[in-house]
Amino acid sequence: MCIKFGLATKAGGGDHRRCCIAHGAAMITRRSLALAPLAAMALAAPALAQTRTKVRFSLNLPRNGSNLAFLFGRDRGYFADEGIEITDMDPASGSDALTRVASGAYDASFADTTGLPDLVSRAPDAAPLSVFNIFRVTPASVVTWSKDKLTKPADLVGKTLGGPITDNGYRLFPVFFKVNGLDPASVKFNNMDLRMREPAFIRREVDGVTGFDSTIWLNLKLLGVKREDISIMSYAAHGLDIYGNGILVSRKFLRDNEAAIPPLLRAVAKSWREAAKDPKAAAAVLTKIDPIIRADIEEERFRWVLEHQVMTPETAATGIGPVDVGRLQKGLDLQVEGFGLPAKIPVSRIWSDKYLPALDQRKMA
């Protein structure tokens, strides 16, 4: 018996055959309609994949707590959700993160923006553009032994410091000293490989070392040093009020893929927001990449960065990303004077806020 619109037709008759043909056609039509969305999705998937913008991204340092938010965001799919395909997220050393993006070898980087004034003066056409600030305070510091009681910049006169000359802790030292009315030449500096900095400090080959506070402190902790044994002299706490790391984009990427910058920054903002909510889970991503990494140490490093460089009153008011243009200009002026650069550098030469996400997407919990 064939059922058609609630009417029963006996098998064997012409009406039955017509009914079954109609019923079969209806079934085929319904099945086709049901499968149509799946077919459309299958056809659309390659197209969507093709529309993703490929971005080669450089980290600021070896993979650690200072940059784990980016790795966490990539692992959670935040960049892919915005149509961004991170083809590389490579570690760097010292100023490499800046030179990589300046050369165009990388599209974007998480780099210390204090290297921009010198680059603008030397190679203005190559200097990348800063589009998103994350470190509200420069992490640059001098670390000494607490028992030596070197607590203010003037105490460093006549001492010997060490560190890699490619590191911005060293590069900013003349500016830091001049801001405090001191002569940088009054301090001897030993250039050394980044990997040898903390061991040389422990062996007392130098009186102190320059670099980023969390990098030096947590590296020393891994070598058995206690926090109370060291003194951290922050440049920011002694007159050098400048911004630190942020997102830089190359001039080539700006020219060829400008439309991809807003979604890239939305993914960056979400990565930092979500990582800050669960530092332990964020740090665990590092061990997925490299099992040798100590997740507990890198979680502590990340928490340090959040407390000392990211979660400032400025961030509470505006979220991560934007800058105070007046403060940025003052910082640039200090660097121009401290580095002995030939001309004033306007904010517009290194910074743009036109690609920033909306405030609700930048707010940190």
Rank of each mutant, 00 (worst) to 15 (best):
298 E>Q: 12
324 D>Q: 11
68 L>M: 11
140 A>P: 03
179 V>S: 09
9 T>W: 12
17 R>H: 02
171 R>K: 15
195 R>K: 14
226 K>Q: 14
81 D>M: 05
285 V>N: 01
55 V>C: 09
150 L>Y: 13
158 G>D: 10
362 R>G: 00
201 F>V: 04
284 A>F: 03
325 V>T: 11
58 S>F: 02
68 L>Q: 03
143 V>F: 14
173 F>Q: 09
181 G>V: 14
153 P>K: 08
215 T>I: 15
101 V>N: 00
338 G>N: 03
141 S>N: 10
226 K>T: 10
197 R>E: 13
269 A>P: 06
36 A>L: 10
336 V>Y: 00
163 G>K: 03
234 S>V: 04
215 T>P: 00
34 A>I: 12
172 L>I: 11
335 Q>E: 13
92 A>H: 01
362 R>H: 03
217 W>G: 01
362 R>F: 00
354 K>A: 14
222 L>R: 13
99 T>W: 08
230 I>C: 08
152 K>H: 10
314 E>I: 09
72 F>Q: 00
197 R>A: 15
11 A>P: 03
338 G>Y: 06
276 A>V: 08
330 K>A: 11
109 S>C: 06
53 T>N: 07
281 A>S: 14
355 Y>R: 02
280 K>P: 01
204 R>D: 15
353 D>F: 02
183 D>I: 06
333 D>G: 02
6 G>Y: 09
213 D>F: 09
294 R>H: 09
343 A>R: 11
206 V>D: 06
56 R>E: 01
43 L>T: 05
342 P>Y: 05
18 R>G: 06
309 Q>M: 15
251 R>N: 15
356 L>K: 02
204 R>P: 09
359 L>W: 00
51 T>A: 13
286 L>V: 03
318 T>A: 13
155 D>Q: 05
334 L>E: 11
271 S>P: 02
213 D>M: 09
203 R>S: 15
37 P>F: 02
268 V>D: 05
163 G>I: 03
222 L>Q: 14
268 V>Q: 08
284 A>R: 02
93 S>M: 12
275 A>E: 09
248 L>S: 05
64 N>S: 12
197 R>T: 15
96 D>V: 03
352 S>D: 14
61 L>Q: 11
258 E>M: 08
162 G>Q: 04
335 Q>L: 07
273 R>S: 07
114 T>Q: 04
112 D>R: 00
276 A>R: 05
26 A>V: 06
341 L>P: 03
285 V>F: 10
233 M>Q: 05
35 L>I: 04
34 A>C: 02
320 I>F: 11
101 V>G: 01
106 Y>G: 07
291 P>M: 04
173 F>R: 06
34 A>P: 01
2 C>P: 05
138 T>H: 02
7 L>H: 13
53 T>Q: 08
117 P>M: 11
341 L>W: 08
328 L>I: 04
26 A>G: 08
79 F>Y: 02
93 S>H: 04
26 A>Y: 12
141 S>G: 09
90 D>W: 05
120 V>M: 10
130 S>M: 07
138 T>G: 10
46 P>Q: 07
168 N>Q: 13
197 R>M: 15
230 I>V: 15
93 S>V: 13
106 Y>R: 05
365 A>L: 03
262 P>A: 14
345 I>E: 06
75 D>M: 00
50 Q>H: 11
